[in-house]
Design a protein around this nucleic acid. Sequence first.
DNA 1: TGCGGTTATTCTGCATACAGAGCACAGAAT
DNA 2: ATTCTGTGCTCTGTATGCAGAATAACCGCA
Lengths: 232, 232
Amino acid sequence: MSSSTATATPRPIDSLPAGLPIARQTLHDQVVTRLRDMVTEGRLAPGQRVNEVALCTGLGVSRTPLREALKTLAGEGLLELVPARGAIVRSFTDKDVADCMMVLKALEQLAGRLLCQVASDAAITGILALHAEMQARYVVRDRLPYFKLNQAIHSSIVAAADNAPLARAHEALQAQMKRIRFIGHEGPEKWAAAMDEHEEMAVALAQRDGEALAEVIGRHHDRGLARIRDVI
Amino acid sequence: MSSSTATATPRPIDSLPAGLPIARQTLHDQVVTRLRDMVTEGRLAPGQRVNEVALCTGLGVSRTPLREALKTLAGEGLLELVPARGAIVRSFTDKDVADCMMVLKALEQLAGRLLCQVASDAAITGILALHAEMQARYVVRDRLPYFKLNQAIHSSIVAAADNAPLARAHEALQAQMKRIRFIGHEGPEKWAAAMDEHEEMAVALAQRDGEALAEVIGRHHDRGLARIRDVI
DNA sequence: TGCGGTTATTCTGCATACAGAGCACAGAAT
DNA sequence: ATTCTGTGCTCTGTATGCAGAATAACCGCA
């Protein structure tokens, strides 16, 4: 079976067409992603207490991996753990949202500056391709794909900055805001404004102008916060 | 029994001398803090595999709360979970350290700007008091208290910014860097330089000059990274 | 003596069992 | 009628048991 799993790096048999290592997933991991989706999709309402046995049976696993997943998600800020009362889906106040957005803004600005310095041309081209695709979705007002591409662009910007801790922090905060952001993309003129900002970002990105990119990203977030503010 | 546990806010019997609510801790919480300390104190060496049963017996708990604590710490970035191989104490490359410091810098700069806008005078006075205390420790070269006060100042700056997500992210990153930072405070001239920067920070803070504070914090981190670089 | 394969042991991942803390409902007392 | 208290049920927190993977030990062989 060409034991290419490389137990402890004994001759990794380099440059064999082994491809990426098989991504083995424990139940824990799977439950984490499933629960995360359930939270962002609103199937677990904010403030709601999470009943362990009910979820267990629903997911078809025992309480052990589920509870471990709850701990992980609490670490990501999606749940709140109250002793003797279990997990509660975190609900966000206006201030929480504003605070999160402020941090997201700072992180993405940093990412923008970094990426203009270190990213490969291919990476930038890839982001610009995402942008073009998103624009295409915008002109036909295809909201869900637009939203997903939007998230993908922001994630890609951070990923291209090649800074793992930055990406981790950004990912956690973005997951927290995902649900709220999805709600707050209403109104054609707001949408147009957001699209304009993305256009500016694309220009700055193509020119590798870190400062300009950071400036636009900051503005994009400030206005983004304003956009979702009156929705809440 | 004066059932003051207030199940769903039924007349909290206001203004009774009940003091703060009893901070109940589950085993999980206690194990988390203990393990975190063990990692930052180096009692669990980076790269080392964590043997669950050994730790269990050492801590006097069963595997369940321990495993849940491992998940939490992995979420904080202190451990790495490898399927079927358990938890490994994360080891940081030079780049990891630089990346972390970069993010810490951005977060603290944001905190500095915010705090100058929103913090109470009392909060600022408190930070300045910490600074004075640290300076006193510096003149007598009392390293451990100096180090702890240093951490406390940086944490207090973030705390005074009154932004929970910011504080969370900062705390996690600071925990990751804690061990490395403790090592890298050698050399009298480096120490003096760090102290000078803190002095500048105190001045900017006293004047509530957010931009100046952010600038000094940035410089402090850049030089801090340089200070620990040649130690590693 | 060094290497490959096979077997034993250890350890993780998951499931289940049990005890105590919450919570709800009902009955008693004012 | 309303409030308080007691009792029973539900649910969480913790411990333990079991199966399979991973690692280590061992042995045969070149």
